[in-house]
Design a protein around this nucleic acid. Sequence first.
DNA 1: AGGCTACCTGCACT
DNA 2: AAGTGCAGGTAGC
Length: 431
Amino acid sequence: MSLRFSQWHKLPINLSELCINTVLRCGQSFRWQQLPDTGEWRCVLYGRLISLKQDPSYLYYRTALPNSQTQTTALPTPPASTVISRSESESATPDRDHADDTDSDVLPIIKHYFALSVNLTELYSQWSSADPNFKKKAPKFTGIRILRQDAWETLICFICSSNNNIARISQMVEKLCVNFGKKIGTVDGRAYHDFPTPEALTGDNVETRLRELGFGYRAKFIHQTAVTVAKEREPGWLYTLENPESPAFGVDPAPGEEMCFQGREGYRRAHEKLLELQGVGPKVADCVCLMGLGWSEAVPVDTHVWQIAQRDYKFGKDRNKSLTKATYDALGNYFRQVWGKEAGWAHSVLFTADLRAFSEKHTTKVEVELKEEKDRSGQIKSKVSTVTAKRVLEEDDKDAARETKTVKKEESVVQTVETRVTRRRSSRFQK
DNA sequence: AGGCTACCTGCACT
DNA sequence: AAGTGCAGGTAGC
């Protein structure tokens, strides 16, 4: 089905409250694609193709609708299994007899997905007053919030993430959608698919197909987890693990429990239950708790966070020099004591600040030196420029020697005197 | 309990 | 230009 976009709508929001250019590529979701020229982001959420862009004052959004007036779209269906947690009479799906309705009902999806009811600026100031390191690092990384994603999608995406890099995770998730997800429609000849249901990944040949698609040993985990969720658990089981205060899209929030430094009871139960799934260890379970189940206190500890803990929080200096299960738990408890109920949100800010693609210390300052060679008549015979790249070190290391390296010679044209390029860009960020 | 190793693949870097 | 190490871990000893 051919789709066309509605006109842009806008929502007033400050970049300190939300920065989509950071949030959509810091490794929370692996599905958003940025268009090369316009900087526009696109993704299918709950069966709806959504397009976003942002300036300092507004978040702009639009959705794709059927091209033909006579065609009617299917209702946006929340994950089938969430329906069980509410009665049919209180379905949150709005009436969609008119095109205007199909257009406007995207706003609730966006507000839910970005958890816009949470005041991020307030949280940043709380974390800053409680933690000097956060106060130091955070100002360069504002507007980073935790996305409220679908639990099933989050689970599978983070099973893919193990021992893997963001670029390849994104490739794999795209393959999942294209090969096993429902096709939503095409825009400008490009097809868009939704994320596959658990049932779609339970087939006997799924593991083989996934291996052929390059999933490696994760193929087995994905298939096995799909079988477990779809056939060996009650319908909607995954969604019973959600934080009632932050439920799936379309479900009304309910009061929750009190927080303690080990995390709320519901969080600990969810974490424990997720560990029963194949390919889910403590880190993946925490990612699902945080981003897919609404447990804001979950702190996923990966290699980055472990390094941050050692470097900035004096962890691992004494006994626990390796990341054992005991150390893992101790770290989560420690960060929850420092940052409080939204520890996972705070962790995400520091994690992003440490990601190669965002980190200052891995960017390179390019300096261009131009030499002209002229012949006897004064005509320019050739231009030779030397481009030197200086790795910009962190502010702490300003006095340290700068690493200088010649990267390119004999440029015919000099375009900029100072350009910032990212070292070792992953393919995802190119173009 | 802590400490190994194997596991798939692609790509940046040497 | 071929070779190596690593990327937001997990399972199984």
